[in-house]
C-alpha cells in the first residue's frame, strides 16, 4: 500500500477539483466534472474501495453529468417573445428591412452575442399579436418581449415628438434588465422593466 505512485494519484484529485472550480462556463465545468469523476474512480480503486469506484463511475460520471446537462440546458435560457409577422418578415428577407429602423434579425443577433457572453441560450417564441405578447409576459411564459410598438400607449405618445425608438424591449426580470441596460447600447431600442404583478408569490 505504501507505494509512491499512490501519493501522486491521490494528489491528482484536488488538482482536478481546483480546475473544476475555476471554470466560468457551465458546460466546460461539466466536462471537467467528467474528468474529476474518472480521476476519483481511479483514486478509489487504487485505495482499494472497488465498490465506491464503481458507484462514482456510474452515478457520479454518467448519471450526474447527463442530469446536470439537461438541467443547465433548460434553466440557462432567455425566452424572447416576438411578433409573428415581424419575425416571418425578418426570416424571409433579412436585407429588405426599412432603412430607418434596424431589422429584427440584427436585434436578435445582438441579443445572441449578449446571451453568449453570459453563457445563456436565446429561445424565440412567436406570438400572433401584441395583446397575446403582453399577456405572455405577464403570465411568465417569456422573459423578454420585443415589439416595434410600445406596450403602454401613453409612453408611446410621449416619445413621439423626439426620435422614437423603433423597438420596445420589455423585461420582467430585474437581473436581465441590469444586464441588458449595460450591454444594449443601440439608441433605437427602448428598454423598460415591468415588475411582476403579484410579488407575493414565491418561486
Amino acid at each position: 500500500m505504501n507505494d509512491s505512485y499512490v501519493y501522486i494519484i491521490v494528489a491528482l484529485l484536488p488538482l482536478v477539483a481546483f480546475m473544476l472550480m475555476l471554470q466560468a462556463n457551465p458546460y466546460n465545468a461539466l466536462v471537467i466534472r467528467g474528468i474529476l469523476g474518472a480521476v476519483a474512480a481511479l483514486v478509489y480503486a487504487v485505495l482499494g474501495a472497488a465498490d465506491v469506484a464503481l458507484t462514482e463511475a456510474l452515478v457520479g460520471t454518467m448519471l450526474a453529468i447527463t442530469l446536470y446537462a439537461v438541467a443547465v440546458r433548460s434553466s440557462l435560457v432567455i425566452r424572447l417573445g416576438v411578433l409573428k409577422d415581424d419575425w416571418l418578415e425578418a426570416e424571409s428577407d433579412p436585407d429588405a428591412a426599412p432603412v430607418d429602423r434596424p431589422s429584427l434579425t440584427q436585434l436578435i443577433t445582438h441579443f445572441r452575442t449578449i446571451a453568449r457572453r453570459y453563457h445563456l441560450r436565446l429561445e424565440l417564441i412567436p406570438y400572433p399579436d401584441l395583446q397575446s405578447l403582453n399577456q405572455g409576459l405577464t403570465e411568465k411564459e417569456v422573459h423578454v418581449t420585443c415589439s416595434p410598438r410600445s406596450p403602454q400607449p401613453e409612453h408611446n405618445s410621449k416619445t413621439d415628438e423626439e426620435k422614437s425608438p423603433s423597438y420596445y424591449t420589455v423585461t420582467r426580470i430585474r437581473r436581465l434588465y441590469d444586464i441588458l441596460q449595460t450591454e444594449l447600447s443601440s439608441p433605437t431600442i427602448c428598454l423598460t422593466y415591468v415588475a411582476p404583478p403579484d410579488t407575493g408569490e414565491k418561486h
Binding site: 467528467g34 474518472a38 469506484a53 463511475a57 454518467m62 448519471l63 453529468i65 447527463t66
Partner: peptide, 13 residues
Amino acid sequence: IILSVGNAGLMLL
C-alpha cells in the same frame, strides 16, 4: 465495467 460503460455517458454528453 468502467471501461465498457463509462464511454456511454461521454456519448450522451
